[in-house]
Design a protein around this nucleic acid. Structure first.
Lengths: 169, 169
DNA sequence: CAGTTAGTTCTGCAAATACAGAACAAAGTT
DNA sequence: AACTTTGTTCTGTATTTGCAGAACTAACTG
């Protein structure tokens, strides 16, 4: 009699990756880097793990084990990362686990968003200029210069990406 | 008999500026903007106040009054801003007060620093690439692309400033 | 030298954060 | 139907943060 053994079900070849000290240390550094950007510690560590993990995709419970944190913390952190669009999961037939991965392919968009976010300060500068008296013309002038530059900068971003593409080809 | 009254001492013309609702609301918004960048709340509010204040320079105790916070909080926040090089104070002959101002004139440097900070992620990407196996070539390839772009971007920054200057003239 | 001004440093606390652990839910397995 | 797997949500708590208030310092003032 034959017993059905599903072929890819819960792939037995997929073992927990062994992280060297170098891996762990790099994950920590990537973690604090992201903490400084305002993310919560675990979120940064998870980004680190997903970056250095050879598969690119890591299961929920491997994240729990590799970072030795609670399931609840991982669940919340992953929800956050997915909400921010920085992370997605996929599943395999016959395997109920979720495999999480960074959206590295979207780095262009992400970076562009970061740049636009930086220049968001322009809106404030312009509001400030609107409201200011002309008691301190030099101050106002410096602000106006900065605003002009930010406008220029924003306009230049697409061209920058264009030039990169051409230079690549 | 004559009594000596110092002319500029503790300038009686300098009154506390009256902040309208619009001023106050803008200060708050500038505050939360900076909070999101990782600064502590009061630091962001002070930046806002120094931006909208018509004099550009604001005394320690006017900051205390306008933002209704304690001296200690203001003292710490200003120490922080000065350490970061975003703020300086000047004094007047015959007046012991310190007048604090943003270094708006340095916006070029500041912005450049911000940009370089963004691309600091490149260091991590490169370390990650060094350590990764080639089990997932597509992932690696995307990362390499991103790293290349960041390198390109950093190189382009000075030229960007140059073009702005020419376009201004 | 007692009193004022201008600001700093120290101490303590209220609120927010980041996480653990337990209870829970949903789906599959035996 | 009981049990297991894979996560989510809820509750409690240790830690950190951000500030107030008091004590302190340094310099000037009368």
């Amino acid at each position: 009699m034959f017993t059905f053994v599903p072929l890819l079900a819960h792939n037995p070849n997929r073992k927990k990756m062994v992280l060297t000290e170098r891996h762990k240390e790099l994950i920590e550094r990537i973690g604090v880097f992201h903490e400084h950007k305002g993310m919560q510690p675990l979120v940064g560590r998870i980004i680190g793990l997903l970056l250095v993990h050879e598969e690119g995709e890591v299961s929920f419970d491997e994240i729990v084990e590799q970072l030795s944190v609670s399931k609840s913390a991982v669940s919340n952190a992953l929800t956050f990362l997915q909400a921010k669009g920085r992370c997605v999961y996929s599943t395999r037939p016959g395997d109920r686990k979720r495999y999480f991965a960074l959206k590295v392919s979207d780095w262009r968009e992400d970076f562009q968003k970061d740049l636009e976010n930086i220049s968001e300060i322009q809106k404030f500068i312009d509001e400030v200029l609107e409201i200011r008296t002309d008691k301190n013309p030099e101050f106002n002038c410096n602000m106006k210069d900065f605003s002009n530059f930010l406008g220029f900068f924003k306009k230049e971003i697409p061209a920058l990406f264009e030039r990169f593409k051409r230079q690549q080809a």
